[in-house]
């Protein structure tokens, strides 16, 4: 594992911890898209089916279990927690996300590394992850004001993607025969979706002002 990959995993973990902290500390999930969180739960469950078939490392297994458990916990809180669920911005979180699921699955049927159940589901999870942030970005844009923890959550989620790209570049340069067409292409698309958000995040950081996204 190289330093970029580790930084990517750690910022990913940090983003999830920040989100859990926000929900736990403020007993509120305002500004958080439940649809994005449900998409991430689907992403992790379908990608980590290999938990049952392959063992890679303790680190790998631990992280997979943490990602699945934390995404399910967040979805559970937003749906069923008696206090938290009341702050859910239902009327702002109206992105038609079944379209994303369908399109990702259709693409996985066309473009995969091998035509097997596990490989098609793996490709599906990669494509879905690339677009899973869209409901969250749309919600933030609609609500205008973004609270600090939610802003940092999205920032670290974007940083995780950027580090993964550096990781692939590093591996491409140092490992013979290294190619990641599916993950690499999807990763670039996914990171590009954050470009706009990053721009406004840095502006607010530079001006030391509250993060606001233009409508």
């Amino acid at each position: 594992m190289n330093v970029f990959r580790l930084a990517g995993d750690m910022t990913h973990l940090l983003s999830i911890l920040l989100l859990l902290l926000k929900i736990y500390a403020t007993k509120s999930c305002s500004g958080v898209s439940r649809k994005t969180q449900e998409l991430y739960a689907i992403v992790f469950i379908f990608r980590y089916l290999d938990l049952f078939t392959d063992f890679i490392s303790v680190y790998n297994t631990f992280m997979k279990v943490v990602f699945i458990a934390s995404s399910l916990a967040i979805v559970w809180c937003m749906r069923f927690h008696p206090v938290v669920r009341r702050s859910y911005d239902r009327e702002l979180d109206t992105f038609r996300y079944f379209f994303l699921v369908g399109a990702s699955f259709a693409l996985a049927l066309i473009w995969h590394e091998k035509f097997s159940v596990q490989e098609v589901f793996w490709a599906f999870s990669i494509y879905l992850e690339a677009v899973a942030i869209l409901p969250q970005l749309v919600l933030l844009q609609r609500s205008g004001n973004v609270d600090n923890l939610t802003g940092q959550y999205v920032f670290f989620l974007g940083a995780y993607r950027a580090f993964y790209i550096l990781n692939w570049i590093y591996r491409y340069l140092t490992e013979p025969r290294f190619t990641r067409w599916i993950a690499g292409t999807s990763g670039v698309v996914q990171t590009a979706l954050y470009a706009d958000f990053f721009y406004y995040y840095f502006i607010s950081w530079k001006n030391n002002s509250k993060l606001k996204l233009p409508a």
Binding site: R5, D9, H12, D50, D54, I56, S57, N60, M63, K64, F67, E113, K114, E119, W122, Y164, N167, R177, T179, R180, A183
Partner: peptide
Amino acid sequence: DDVDDTKDEL
């Protein structure tokens, strides 16, 4: 076959 080693990433 380098399909398998893809899955060491999360």
